[in-house]
Structures are given as structure tokens and as C-alpha cells.
Design a protein around this nucleic acid. Structure first.
Length: 649
RNA sequence: GGCGGCGUAGCUCAGUUGGUUAGAGCGAGCGGUUCAUACCCGCUAGGUCAACGGUUCGAGUCCGUUCGCCGCUACCA
């Protein structure tokens, strides 16, 4: 059995419904998959949802649902959106499925057999939301750097010997420049690995949800470790037949989960298990919305819902529903942020729709068919095409192919439109209406050339807009182009073929009805395609006992001296009086307070905190402050002066 | 503070290993055309390629410095 062309999206974390970012990744993958199929490859296209992790369980509970119900519902949302976007995946794997559990457990066993994992004691803070361990030093006001709740854990866990794979990874990256793409991302990975890799804790205490560690069921496999293995479990591994799919030809994802996970941890895991590495790992950038200022003011949780966008286009244009889907697919492909980030706004989508789809492609088809009916009886003329047109087709096709080799889907779109633009120009240059008027014998070959350009466009556009491509083929009176190699072949446009009357596929958006300001008004915050979103939707209130609180000794203190800590942006070194004791406290409040202004103020301090060193300076306590905007701080001061040392409850 | 990235025409962006007059699309202006979804085609943008300096016969493209923006990171006990 020949190896199938295997491409993947990430396994999307079910903490929120799919947005434009996840849709971007998935549609781009779908475009690649459809293209590969046309190239004659047996394709296996995988997507799915990542459903394990403590956070999922707690999110479900916070929502009053059982974990299984919760993940069923959210996973269903993903499937619904992807299907609605006409994504033809071959497998939708959910990490809560038995086949995945089996693969993960087997994978774990193999690593244990090969001594790639070991048990160690972990004590420290744990950020439930991001499911990561947080170093003591990284805590911010008792929270994780992301502002999430942390809890103290003391547990024994399994660690993966990631630290041993730096050299091998670098060697692999250097050996094949196309392994990690694009190049700018590859450089990031190299520098990340060169900084040194640390062993990674790959289990958590079993909360009753997740994949238990085989032979050590009190623990579950860390959600990231588990999620990455989905690529393998979907192939059927470790059962027979997986080699006809694995290794992946391409893993697609957004940039934020590239460096640490897909370009480092995952290849190392595979090396550790003696499994082949994926051929290409490709990351795209993010969609952003509007200008920097607009982003600032609308950065709260707004996202463009893909299906709403589809509905809007359908409404604005009066096009067929499937065409609206194609239009959104087109906008995603054309605007793909291959290296940097790109703006994705309704204005831009509308602009692209009118300019590229309605005016360029749609109108080219429309005017060509119209002429064919007027000048050549609505039939495909026999004879030869003009060399000029054949050359344009060959060039566009070749440029399209090169772009796809590098996964530059946006460049492929550009290549296809090169042909469309050529066609419009060609029509003007050759002016069939003049030829017809003069009875010029060149008319037939010119008309035939025009139709062949459209026929070729239909093929090239097909991976991106399958429905519109069908429409074009139908109006040309030919069957859909199935094989990429057939593009540009004159035999695929038989002479004498009956042409349909022209029928606009992409009705224009009337600029008068489409309000220009709408896009700005509705523009939303940056929507990356994370399978691990850093922002939790459900924040379970971590209740503590009164006794826990009483452990914290809060006292009134007075600042006697304050000076900026040299070499630090935020730290202030203070001498404070607590009772009759003088202490040194370091606090990160300089953004909001000038040190001289602090002297003499009364504040509340945590008096029984274990001293810590910051920038080499000992801090014997902590000053209480509310979180101010932009990382600032707002100091707490007794409403009335109170003797230094007065306790606070 | 450290590491990395970015800063190219009004807007959105291309610019491969340094090489003749720096490109595309959109918008705008002018002209043309009439087959077409008021479409399409042509012409027009005089952009100090953020700034300064350097290497070179020659730099947007390499090096250094500065400014501005972004990301990660170190300290907000």
C-alpha cells in the first residue's frame, strides 16, 4: 500500500468554540488536501479536538455539565463549523476516544521501556488554567504570569528526558531546511533549543478525567503530551497499517504552538520512541483586526464568527450559500499570514470579494460566455488556441505549484489570479467584438483561448473554492477538473461543446449598502488559532478555609525610604517600619509610583512571607497593591493612620 | 534589562543567495473600450525602502548605532 499524504491541523482545545483563527488553519489545510488529491495523491487529512486536561473537567463542572457532555458539545461545534466551511477531513479525532487513549498509553510504555521517562518529586505552584507549573519566582501577586489562579502541589510525577534531544533536533533542523517552515520561525526554534532544553513534567495527579498513566493510575498524562500523540493515534498506531499513513507530510498550525510544542517537544518525543519524524512542520501567523488603536479599544473577547461572516456575505451579495462559503475560504487563503500577521477585516474581505471574485474572475467568465453566445453560437470553437494564452496558463500553473510546494497558499492564490488578470487583458487586446464585426478568422481561436483560460482557472481555483469551481465548469459545459495535470489541456475543452448562458456566480456587493464603517465597528481582537488558549473562560473560584486566610499575617507599615532598584524597570527597594521592626521590601510598583513619593506613606504588608531575593536583593515581605491598568499597581493604604504593626484582617 | 522580530507608495503587502530607472493589488486622478456584474484595459504615485554611520565598484537586501512598534524572557515576596 502506498504511503498516503498525511496532513494535520492541531487538535483544537475545547475551551471555546472555533473562531476565525481555527477556521483559518483548518481551511488552509483543506485547500492543501484538495490540491494534493488533484495531484493524484492518496490523502489523509486529520483534524480533531483536544479534550483532556484538568481545565476541561473544571470548565465542565463550572458549566454544570459532566465532562463528557461538555466535550461532546464543544467538539460538536468544531465539527459543525468545519463541515459548514466545506472542510473535507478524513478523520476527526477526539482525544477522549479509546483509540487515542490506547496509543498514548502505549507510547508512554515505550518511553518507559526505553528509559526516556523517570519519576521525580515535584513541589511547587500549578496554574490550573494553562495546566503548567509555575516557578516560585514567576508568581505575580500570588498568581501565574498570565494572571491565573495557582495552587500549591506536592506530587510525584513522570518527567520526559527532553534535555537530551537538543543536539539531535538541531542536526535534524539543519539537515533539512524545509523541515520547519517558514524560515523565520525555524530560526526562532534554533535559538530556543540553543538556549538549552529542560526535562519536562509529563504527568499530573489524576483528577478523574484524562488518560491514566499505565501502571500508575493515580496520574494522568499531561494534556500537551497527550494531545501531540493524536497525530500518531489517528494512523492506527500501534496496530498494523499505521505506516501507510505515518509520518505526517505536514503539520499545520498557528505560530504560538510551533516553537515549544510542534517543533521541539513533538519531534523529541518521536525520536525517543524511535519513530519517524514529520516531513514538514509549518506555522502561519495570526489574523489581527484593524489598526493598533482599534485593537486596543476592542480587545475584549470579540471574535469574528466564521459562519456569521458567511451569512453576512450571502446577505450582502445575494449569492448562493455555498458561494458565500467559498468567498470566505478565498479570503482566508488569499490573506494567509505566512510569515508575519495580517489584518483581517470585513472591509478587506468585502474588497477582495468585489475586486477579485466579482470583477476579475466572475466578470471574466460572464463576458466570455456572453461573447460566445453572440459571436460563436454559444459553442466552444474548434481549432487551436493562441500561444500567448497557452503560455499564460502554463506560467500560472507552474507558479501555483511552486507556491504550494512551500505551503504559501496565499502566493498560490496570487498565481491563479495572474491568469485571470491575463485573461481580462487578453480580451481587451484581441477584442473579439471587433474580430466578429470584421469576420476575422482569428475569432475562433481567440474565443477558444479565452474559454481555455477559464477552464484552467476553474481547475486552479478548485482547491480553494470547490463550489464556485463547479459552477464555472457547469457554465462552460464541461465536467469538473479532477486531475491537476489536466489543467491547460486543450482536450479538456472539446470543440462543439455547448456553453450555458452566463449567470453571475459572485454578485457584487453594492458599496452603497455595505457601510464602510461597519468593519471597524465590528472588528475584533486578534484571533490566533490556539489549541491551547491562554485565557480561561471559566475560572473556578478556589475557595479557601478561614484558617488558610488567617495564616497570612497582614500588618500596617510605614515606608521610611524608597529608591529605584538599579537595572530594573519596575522594582522599588523600600525600608519599611512594621511595629518596631524595620524591614527591606522589594516591590514592583515603579510604573505607578516614583520612589520619593512613597516615603512616609502607610501601606499594608504581608509580614510572614518567606523572604526572597529579587535582583539579588532580599525582600522581607510583600506590599499589597491592587492591579492597575497596563501592569501598574495601586497601593493599599489604611483609610486612617494606624500605628505601625497594627494587624489587618 | 536580555533575546528575537518588525518598520518599503494613501491603504494591504511582495521583494529570492547585495547589481541596471524599488514592485503588486486596492484606493485616487486622467484616458480608452463596450463583450461584460457601472465591469475591463492603459497611463499617473516622483515613496529620503524608519534615522544615522559603515563595508562594497554597487545595499531595501550585509555590519554598527539610534528611534518607534511587537513578541518571548528576567525581576513585580
Amino acid at each position: 500500500m502506498p504511503k498516503r499524504y498525511f496532513l494535520t491541523t492541531p487538535s483544537y482545545y475545547v475551551n471555546s468554540v472555533p473562531h476565525i483563527g481555527t477556521t483559518l488553519t483548518t481551511v488552509i489545510c483543506d485547500v492543501c488536501a484538495r490540491y494534493r488529491k488533484m495531484r493524484g495523491e492518496e490523502v489523509f487529512f486529520l483534524t480533531g479536538t483536544d479534550e483532556n486536561g484538568t481545565k476541561v473537567m473544571e470548565a465542565a463542572e463550572a458549566n454544570g455539565e459532566k465532562p463528557q457532555e461538555f466535550v461532546d458539545r464543544i467538539s460538536g461545534e468544531f465539527q459543525k463549523v468545519f463541515r459548514a466551511m466545506h472542510v473535507e477531513y478524513d478523520d476527526f479525532l477526539r482525544t477522549s476516544e479509546p483509540r487515542h487513549r490506547k496509543a498514548v498509553q502505549r507510547f508512554f510504555e515505550i518511553l518507559r521501556e526505553k528509559d526516556q521517562v523517570y519519576l521525580d518529586q515535584y513541589q511547587g505552584w500549578y496554574d490550573v488554567s494553562s495546566e503548567t507549573f509555575v516557578k516560585e519566582a514567576d508568581l505575580v501577586d500570588g498568581k501565574s504570569p498570565d494572571g491565573n489562579e495557582v495552587r500549591w502541589v506536592e506530587e510525584e510525577n513522570w518527567f520526559f528526558r527532553l534535555s537530551g534531544f537538543g543536539e539531535a533536533l538541531l542536526a535534524r533542523i539543519e539537515a533539512d531546511p524545509t523541515f520547519l517552515l517558514p524560515a523565520t520561525r525555524r530560526n526562532e526554534v534554533v535559538s530556543f533549543i540553543q538556549q538549552g532544553l529542560r526535562d519536562i513534567c509529563i504527568t499530573r495527579a489524576n483528577p478523574g478525567w484524562g488518560i491514566p498513566v499505565p501502571g500508575d493510575e493515580g496520574k494522568v498524562v499531561y494534556v500537551w503530551f497527550d494531545a501531540l500523540i493524536n497525530y500518531l493515534s489517528a494512523t492506527g498506531w500501534p496496530d498494523e497499517g499505521w505506516e501507510s499513513i505515518w509520518p505526517a507530510d505536514v503539520h499545520w498550525m498557528a505560530k504560538e504552538i510551533f516553537t515549544r510544542f510542534h517543533a521541539t517537544l513533538w519531534p523529541a518525543m518521536l525520536m525517543a520512541a524511535d519513530l519517524p519524524l514529520p516531513k514538514h512542520v509549518v506555522a502561519h501567523g495570526w489574523f489581527t483586526f484593524g489598526t493598533a488603536e482599534e485593537k486596543m479599544s476592542k480587545s475584549k473577547g470579540n471574535v469574528i464568527a466564521p459562519l456569521e461572516l458567511v451569512a453576512e456575505i450571502e446577505k450582502k451579495t445575494g449569492c448562493k450559500p455555498a458561494v458565500a462559503v467559498d468567498a470566505v475560504r478565498y479570503s482566508l487563503a488569499a490573506l494567509l499570514p505566512y510569515e508575519g500577521d495580517t489584518n483581517y477585516t470585513r472591509d478587506e474581505v468585502d474588497r477582495r470579494y468585489n475586486a477579485d471574485l466579482a470583477n476579475d474572475l466572475g466578470n471574466a467568465l460572464n463576458r466570455s460566455l456572453s461573447m460566445a453566445h453572440k459571436f460563436v453560437n454559444g459553442q466552444v470553437p474548434d481549432g487551436e488556441c493562441e500561444a500567448e494564452a497557452l503560455a499564460a496558463i502554463a506560467q500560472a500553473k507552474s507558479e501555483f505549484e511552486s507556491a504550494m510546494e512551500e505551503f504559501r497558499v496565499n502566493a498560490a492564490v496570487e498565481a491563479a489570479w495572474g491568469l485571470v488578470r491575463f485573461l481580462n487583458k487578453y480580451i481587451d487586446t484581441r477584442a473579439p467584438w471587433v474580430l466578429a464585426k470584421n469576420g476575422d478568422p482569428a475569432l475562433a481561436s481567440v474565443m477558444r483561448s479565452m474559454l481555455l483560460c477559464l477552464r484552467a482557472s476553474e481547475g486552479m481555483v478548485r482547491p480553494i473554492m470547490p463550489f464556485a469551481a463547479d459552477e464555472i465548469a457547469r457554465q462552460l459545459g464541461v465536467p469538473p477538473t479532477k486531475d491537476w495535470d489536466a489543467i491547460g489541456k486543450e482536450s479538456k475543452l472539446p470543440g462543439g461543446g455547448e456553453l450555458s448562458p452566463p449567470e453571475p456566480i459572485f454578485p457584487r456587493i453594492d458599496p452603497k449598502t455595505a457601510s464602510v464603517g461597519q468593519a471597524v465597528a465590528e472588528a475584533a481582537a486578534a484571533a490566533p488559532a490556539p489549541s491551547k488558549a491562554p485565557k480561561p473562560k471559566f475560572e473556578p473560584p478556589a475557595e479557601i478555609e478561614i484558617g488558610d486566610f488567617m495564616k497570612v499575617k497582614l500588618q500596617v507599615a510605614r515606608i521610611l525610604e524608597a529608591e529605584a532598584v538599579e537595572g530594573s524597570e519596575k522594582l522599588v527597594k523600600m525600608q519599611v517600619l512594621v511595629g518596631d521592626e524595620q524591614r527591606q521590601i522589594i516591590a514592583g510598583i515603579r510604573k505607578s509610583y516614583d520612589p520619593p513619593d512613597l516615603v512616609g506613606r502607610q501601606v499594608i504588608v504581608v509580614a510572614n512571607l518567606k523572604p526572597a531575593k529579587l535582583m539579588g536583593l532580599e525582600s522581607q515581605g510583600m506590599v499589597l497593591a491592587a492591579d492597575g491598568p497596563d501592569g501598574g499597581a495601586i497601593l493599599l493604604t489604611p483609610e486612617q493612620e494606624a500605628p505601625e504593626g497594627t494587624s489587618v484582617h
